[in-house]
């Protein structure tokens, strides 16, 4: 079974079965950005360098996403608003991570920001929509249109198979219960679940406070980038909550 990207797992945990989000959009966007960045750090695609982030070139030397950081010579469009201002088909997805969110992060990271700046800029894009599109494309989610009271139309993105969300949370549950030692990816997901207060989605019979503390403990005990990244997301989520304008 192919493992989903970390931000896909987090997206599934952050929505109920009917597709309703369980956390505020700004908090979720920061969490998704953190998850995607963690995946890229663990894959070695983005590396920390003197307090900043740097993109490690692809072996082929062909990196369209990173190349767009300073602008797109073919279209004449600048990359001022990040790679997400390009249409999905033109984003370079598929040549690197194969994911619009990950490719967008790589392009932003090519400018050499620190993790905090990168996450804030990334979260300003429609990460939730891009992640949802990725899950729709892979068939994990299905688009369902209905009418309220037979009149008002609305669209939801529901799980095609509930097993997807069970798989997404299985590593975290195993780590908390001590059945299986967590790897760095799983530890990162534990930390992000704690930050976004999604512990109820784990369906573990533990008091919420103790469970969150355990999840944070797992993230902190992992390799340094994991704990540090989770900490940054935690601070950014809090700062977003006291922002003057959203």
């Amino acid at each position: 079974m192919t493992r989903l990207p970390l931000h896909h797992d987090l997206y599934l945990l952050a929505h109920d079965q009917s597709g309703k989000p369980l956390v505020h959009a700004s908090s979720l966007a920061l969490g998704l950005a953190g998850a995607a960045l963690l995946d890229l750090l663990l894959a070695g695609r983005i590396v920390p360098s003197a307090g900043r982030l740097a993109v490690r070139p692809l072996p082929s030397g062909d990196d369209p996403a990173a190349g767009r950081a300073g602008g797109d010579s073919a279209t004449g469009r600048t990359g001022g608003d990040g790679p997400w201002s390009w249409p999905a088909g033109d984003s370079g997805a598929g040549q690197d991570a194969g994911d619009a969110v990950a490719d967008g992060l790589v392009a932003l990271a090519a400018r050499g920001p620190d993790a905090r700046s990168l996450l804030k800029r990334a979260a300003a894009a429609d990460l939730c929509g891009l992640t949802r599109d990725g899950l729709l494309a892979s068939g994990v989610l299905v688009r369902v249109s209905r009418r309220r009271l037979g009149m008002l139309p609305y669209t939801r993105h529901e799980l095609a198979d509930i097993a997807s969300v069970v798989r997404a949370s299985s590593g975290v549950r195993s780590a908390v219960e001590g059945w299986k030692p967590p790897d760095a990816r799983c530890a990162g997901l534990c930390g992000l679940v704690a930050v976004l207060r999604l512990e109820e989605q784990l369906y573990l019979d533990q008091p919420a406070g103790r469970l969150v503390a355990r999840l944070r403990e797992i993230a902190t005990a992992a390799d340094p980038p994991v704990g540090e990244l989770v900490e940054i997301v935690d601070v950014l989520v809090a700062e977003a909550a006291v922002a003057v304008y959203r």
Binding site: H24, A25, V237, A238, A240, A241
Partner: peptide, 26 residues
């Protein structure tokens, strides 16, 4: 913002730095 900043700097009780993630509010 002031309560959050002072609480995060550990100059006020830490519960004032906690936020609700569900609604993104302090």
């Amino acid at each position: 913002r002031l309560l959050y900043a002072m609480a995060r700097d550990r100059q006020l009780p830490s519960f004032l730095a906690k936020v609700s993630v569900r609604h993104s509010v302090p």
